[in-house]
């Protein structure tokens, strides 16, 4: 498992009301937590709302917090609980919706969290890629275009697209080296 976010995760800092620390926690965890919440509530706005509310609560009760797990697990666990709460509220209103909370795929699982964390790191690495490389990679992965279609759309050769895609893969592989041990093999 990869080393988690390299931001200060001391709860003591949070307890003193250090807004800068709080902000860095927000910046680190907001996106992955929203994506995580979306898996349960299947509504982007609701997911954002849930995570924002979580951070507000976290700040408000910072002095009485007693977290015996890691901050990261605490964050995901809390957001998970809020989601389940949200779902059951929705359900009371819409009885015809299946009981999502009861489905096994909706149980809290560390694997699910690990997957989101991996995706978050991939996303951050993509954001750090050089402009052209990032653009082409996103067109392929996010918009589902084939290399040929990308070449056409951007008016460049298919070979250039392939070069940029392979560059993107190389960057990803390098940035996530600690996530997947075992050195890069020579071809």
């Amino acid at each position: 498992m990869a080393a988690a976010a390299k931001i200060p995760v001391s709860l003591d800092g949070l307890k003193t009301g250090d807004i800068c620390l709080f902000e860095s926690l927000f910046r680190e965890y907001y996106r992955p937590l929203v994506v995580y919440a979306m898996k349960y509530v299947r509504d982007t706005d609701a997911a954002k709302e849930i995570v924002q509310e979580f951070f507000v609560r976290l700040y408000e009760k910072r002095s009485s917090l007693a977290i015996d797990t890691s901050l990261k697990s605490y964050f995901y666990r809390s957001v998970y609980n809020s989601c389940i709460n949200y779902i059951s509220h929705m359900e009371m209103r819409n009885r015809h919706i299946k009981n999502l909370a009861m489905q096994s795929e909706n149980e809290f699982s560390d694997n699910q969290v690990a997957l989101i964390e991996l995706q978050n790191r991939i996303y951050k690495s993509v954001e750090d890629m050089p402009v052209q490389c990032r653009r082409i990679f996103k067109l392929n992965r996010f918009e589902g275009l084939r290399n040929e279609q990308i070449a056409e759309k951007l008016g460049i050769s298919k070979r250039t697209v392939e070069t940029q895609i392979s560059k993107a893969l190389r960057i990803l592989r390098k940035k996530l080296a600690d996530y997947f041990p075992g050195g890069v093999q020579k071809y």
Binding site: P32, V35, Q119, Y123, F137, F142, L176, F180
Partner: peptide, 14 residues
């Protein structure tokens, strides 16, 4: 990495 990167589209709108 290739497969998971497709899921990252979810991060885009946040």
């Amino acid at each position: 990495l290739w497969e998971e990167s497709r899921q990252c589209v979810l991060f885009e709108g946040i």
